[in-house]
Design a binder for these strands. Structure first.
Lengths: 351, 351
DNA sequence: ATCACTTGTGGGAGCGCTCCCACGGTACCT
DNA sequence: AGGTACCGTGGGAGCGCTCCCACAAGTGAT
């Protein structure tokens, strides 16, 4: 009621100008207070803040965006259909990390799906209109043109999971190589001798790295290389099942499997069951992701956990830094950041 | 390359003014073309469109928002933590409906979670800043202050699932009453005589309506009312289990159960199994929502399907209408719309 | 006292649009 | 011929902010 009565006669929302008049200062001073500039005396600041409170002033975002040429918004672009987004806990965790990192900034997060061609088209328009200050890109395939589009438009962007070792965008990733090594070394430590591997989709860089980690861990432990112990999967349950069946046929003596994802491991488990192998007595099984599947599997699955929430957090840190750096357009192109976060092996009954 | 060379020397994005100069027309005319006004001659329109294409002109959203006092954005507000949002397929379906309804407008959708107090606070600021033209509210509890806040700020809003029969906001809902009747009539039609009901959370209006539908269907079929056949649930699996156990104790002769949600039915199924009752031979079971759970249950669960995707679609229709109507500020307050969509019974093996 | 800085402040200019008024032209009536 | 209507068009004004320059007042070295 008080706040209502205090409103200017115009009836609309109060403007900077009105706040300035009320506080007995100039427009520029109010702007400084609102934006937290240090070059304001304490007395003036207090007067302005009082006026802001009395009038219930809230800055007009559109005016600010127009004048300052920024939007205070960033987009989380998911180049997948909504369905995938909801199905995989990965996104939920990522979103939480991103959200918490953003919660004490004025930045706003937009969630944009670009699964269909139509949505792609819209996204391109959207980016061309520079409606966001920066972009977070998750789950990008190797041949996706999106990252290049972003570079061309000079929009700051951070990618989760680089497309290759030569990724040009700033990226955040978990240590796929190290995680795989952890898994394999764990199996070796448990006395397993014949450790097979079901890969992920090898057009995904992270999947390649997991396979590299598997190979190097075995080599460093003095195991002889055996390509017959490696079978390609595709991150799906059916793929895991098929791969496991093939491995059992080729190397019936195997006593451990490292699968490139939990879902893959679930498929492998089926195939092992069908073949009458007990887990972990006959064959130890380790997955990757530490998803809900791992916890609920029978027996519970040992798995490599990625700090997804933290990855989201770090992505925001890097993106905000990149946005801030953009102002002086010098000294770009250098200092490309490729952040890699450590993984953790969660041991359960399957190994 | 052509488009790059065609850019104005300023290097930045082309403006309306530059397009106007290039097309040899005035600023206003370009604006008319961009906004699809009919009061432009075909020749002029073509010239402007050519200039737009050559320069790669994209309107500046901030400038438009400032001048026109609208944002071309609407928010889908979810007063729940992210976790719930991802866990329930309801939201995913809703989002798809909303997205498709929006895809041929210039409106952009923002997804806002307001589960914690902190997020609530942010949301209030956000709405006060009028950063969206309208709001879609899903999953609102009876005592939530959010709807009133929206009314006070005079922000157009549509709610899914009215809070009561006296809902003041425009709302879209599925026919909970009718859906429950369908379920119960189906059971009666199958010759069941003693039909129990596990309710949802009764502080949710839709849950009340389902219970009303159950009661009325029985009454209209000439069954005598028996409150011992009704037990309160809370939409959770554990609640369903507990309620079912209680019902079995009170009325061991029951031969059918209508549960207020699929999850509740899943709980009931456990309790029935433990009690040695076979489904559907001894007890028929019907759920509500037709979620993935229903399809994957053993046996597959008969369930009432709500057209959630269509609800999302209709919500957008109503919201856009309300936003458009707002311009002439007369004739508001009347014509409150409460849209109710029909449900459909999906019969499976459990009944 | 003079100069050179620094600090806090006011307000002009301008961001890129939309809205709207004014104007010339054409068409159709008297 | 004059009057009236409408159509298509140009461009001024203004949306509410940020940026930046100018300037007054204070500070300290000379």
């Amino acid at each position: 009621m008080a706040s209502h009565g205090a409103r200017s006669r115009s009836g609309g929302r109060p403007t900077l100008e009105e706040v300035a008049a009320r506080a007995g200062v100039g427009r520029g001073t109010v702007s400084r207070v609102i934006n937290g500039s240090p070059r304001v005396s304490d007395a003036t600041r207090a007067a302005v803040e009082a006026a802001v409170a009395e009038l219930g002033y809230v800055p007009n975002t559109a005016a600010r965006a127009l004048a300052a040429n920024r939007t205070d918004a960033i987009a989380l672009v998911v180049p997948e259909p909504e369905t995938r987004f909801f199905a995989e806990p990965y996104f939920s965790d990522m979103l939480r990390g991103v959200g918490s990192a953003l919660s004490d900034t004025r930045m706003q997060l937009l969630l944009i799906f670009a699964g269909s061609d139509r949505e792609r088209q819209r996204l391109a328009q959207y980016l061309a209109a520079h409606r966001v200050d920066g972009v977070l890109l998750v789950s990008v395939h190797a041949d996706d043109p999106l990252p290049d589009m972003l570079s061309q438009l000079e929009i700051p962007a951070v990618i989760s999971g680089p497309r290759s070792a030569a990724e040009t965008l700033t990226s955040v990733d978990s240590d796929n190589y190290g995680g795989a090594r952890q898994a394999v070394e764990h199996l070796i430590g448990r006395g397993r001798r014949t450790i097979a591997h079901i890969t992920g989709r090898l057009d995904v860089y992270g999947a390649q790295r997991r396979t590299d980690g598997y190979r190097d861990a075995l080599r460093d432990a003095g195991h002889e290389a055996d390509e017959l112990l490696i079978e390609a999967g595709d991150f799906t349950e059916e793929g895991g099942r098929r791969a496991m069946a093939a491995l059992l046929e080729r190397r019936p003596d195997l006593d451990a499997v490292f699968a490139a994802s939990d879902v893959t491991a679930a498929g492998a488990r089926h195939a092992l069951r069908e073949a009458g192998r007990r887990i972990p007595d006959d064959v130890a099984l380790v997955g990757y992701d530490d998803s809900a599947i791992a916890r609920h599997m029978d027996p519970p699955l040992t798995s490599v956990r990625q700090p997804i929430e933290e990855m989201g957090h770090r992505m925001i840190d890097l993106l905000l830094a990149e946005i801030a750096d953009r102002r002086p357009p010098a000294s770009r192109e250098l200092d490309r950041r490729q952040m890699v976060l450590a993984t953790e092996l969660v041991e359960r009954a399957s190994s």
